[in-house]
């Protein structure tokens, strides 16, 4: 197991190298740089000499490969550089934004599971009954709605109309958390309900269920004990993917609700062409990706004897 883990973590290296190089190259190709944008946004005329001087200070006037190697060198010695815009240490910036994103990830995943699991099972058990159609209808709606739209609708009703919740993040974290969580949950619940329904239906068709039914085991026991256990694999895979996505920050939702997380940091950095911060974000995404894959595989190993046996024999 330790060897396997090590091997998997080794795979992180080429992915990280590839992805940082790619993003470095792409942002340079994209043109524009932090210095020019900073002066341009503020809207006043600044002479070209000043712009050139500041660029040289950041090393933006050097050839692309030199810039990349410098950055990589810094990385290897644990120095992620400092932001061109705010002059703060990139690692500090990143760490300061992480808790908000983690909190939102946890809360929206919890809410999703709490709603989607019962609804999905209910929908499967009552297949083709009105409740099933109702649940499927709403899950279709939730699935076909862009999340900024959901955000605005929720904001309009819950805050503006009924005045229950603050619009953007305030000191009262518990209340501020509700709107972004709900927004994210809308599309996730829709997706999960459908998936859980399909998985449960598939399991219900299997022989062991028929067998258990024939032996007189109660319906709810079958569902919770047997079906849920075997449906877990699918659900966990899905969850892992969603957690990966959410940890990358949800740019649009974070922006609308002024939730000061990683996604908003990324959008701001991209808008300002703040390369060191963008690089940190890209790296974070790569790490999440590899780790999520690793964790799912390990859960598979643990949960599914078939995979475990095959893995060991191979």
């Amino acid at each position: 197991m330790g060897k396997y883990l090590f091997k998997r973590l080794l795979q992180l290296i080429p992915v990280l190298l590839g992805i940082t190089f790619l993003s470095f190259a792409m942002m340079r190709l994209a043109g524009g740089d932090a210095v020019t944008y900073m002066y341009e946004n503020a809207g006043a005329a600044v002479s070209q000499e000043i712009i050139d001087e500041t660029k040289a200070e950041y090393g933006l006037d050097q050839p692309f490969l030199v810039q990349y190697m410098k950055w990589l060198g810094g990385m290897l010695t644990g120095d992620m550089g400092e932001s061109y815009v705010s002059h703060r240490d990139v690692f500090d910036i990143f760490i300061s934004k992480l808790p908000a994103t983690l909190l939102l990830t946890v809360s929206s995943i919890l809410l999703t599971v709490l709603i989607a699991l019962p609804l999905g099972i209910l929908s499967a058990v009552r297949q083709n009954k009105w409740i099933d159609y109702l649940i499927r209808f709403f899950s279709f709606i939730g699935n076909s709605m862009p999340n900024f739209f959901a955000a605005l609708v929720l904001m309009y009703f819950l805050s503006v109309r009924w005045n229950l919740l603050p619009v953007v993040t305030t000191d009262d974290m518990a209340k501020s958390l509700i709107l972004p969580t709900l927004t994210l949950a809308v599309s996730m619940v829709s997706k999960y309900t459908r998936q859980i329904r399909a998985t449960v239906l598939e399991e219900l068709d299997k022989d062991y269920v028929t067998g258990a039914r024939a032996r007189g085991v109660r319906g709810s026991v079958i569902i919770w004990k047997s079906v849920m256990k075997s449906s877990m694999l699918t659900i966990i895979t899905l969850l892992a993917l969603s957690i990966g996505n959410l940890l990358g920050g949800t740019a649009i939702v974070e922006n609308i609700f002024m939730w000061d997380g990683v996604g908003k940091m990324a959008v701001d950095a991209i808008n300002m062409r703040d390369y060191p911060v963008i690089q940190a974000y890209v790296e974070w995404m790569a790490i999440i990706y590899v780790l999520v894959n690793l964790v799912t595989d390990m859960i598979y190993h643990y949960l599914d004897p078939r995979v475990r046996l095959r893995g060991e024999s191979a």
Binding site: V267, I270, Y281
Partner: peptide
């Protein structure tokens, strides 16, 4: 892997 892990936004 690289493309899957690459943030779509960037």
């Amino acid at each position: 892997d690289i493309f899957l892990a690459f943030p779509g936004l960037v």
